[in-house]
């Protein structure tokens, strides 16, 4: 950044009222003592004034009427927060987190930790991957545990939902 750009940047900050009190005081002193800074400041101040008085463009006379005619055919949509239930989002997140954990545990238990790190005796025997029997994992304890967690999560969500519906109906009646 050259000197002129640097001066302009500092001056714009000063004009916008940004920066700390110390910075502002420092710039203020520079403006009063340094002719270069003073000239640049006055120039930018003029530009700032012109920008502040930029006129707004106006649409056609029928603009508001056109919009009012358009919206008469529409209804205000219910607020997104009223139909997006955060519990459902948390439930879905919980499901995926559980899935990832179960998958990781299943993978880590297959690793032969006592194996060396050389290529010939890799910790994971990739050659045997084609012989993996998926049925073995589906029937494993982890799968049952995973299913249990999801069932519990589902029941908790259902319970909360029913409670929410119940309290909503009660408040409507009252």
């Amino acid at each position: 950044m050259n000197k002129q750009q640097h001066i302009e940047e500092r001056l714009w900050e000063y004009i916008d009222g940004a920066g700390s009190a110390e910075d502002r005081l420092f710039i203020e002193q520079l403006i009063t003592t340094n002719q270069e800074w003073k000239t640049k400041y006055e120039e930018l101040l003029q530009l700032q004034d012109m920008l502040s008085h930029l006129e707004l463009d106006e649409p056609s006379m029928r603009f508001t009427q056109n919009i009012m005619e358009s919206i008469s055919k529409h209804h205000i949509a219910p607020a997104a927060r009223s139909y997006i239930n955060k519990r459902i989002i948390w439930g879905i997140a919980g499901f995926f987190i559980c899935s990832i954990i179960v998958l990781l545990v299943a993978c880590l238990t297959q690793v032969n930790w006592s194996a060396g790190s050389s290529v010939s005796s890799s910790a994971i025997n990739f050659g045997k991957l084609s012989h993996v029997d998926p049925g073995r994992f589906i029937n494993s304890t982890y799968t049952t545990l995973f299913m249990m967690i999801n069932v519990v999560l589902g029941l908790v969500l259902l319970d909360r939902y029913l409670n929410f519906r119940k309290s909503k109906m009660e408040s409507k009646r009252s």
């Binding site: 919009i67 358009s70 919206i71 209804h75 205000i76 949509a77 607020a79 997104a80």
Partner: peptide, 10 residues
């Protein structure tokens, strides 16, 4: 403005 009207509840 039409979009803003429809989503005003948001």
């Amino acid at each position: 403005f039409v979009k803003a009207y429809r989503s005003l509840a948001d």
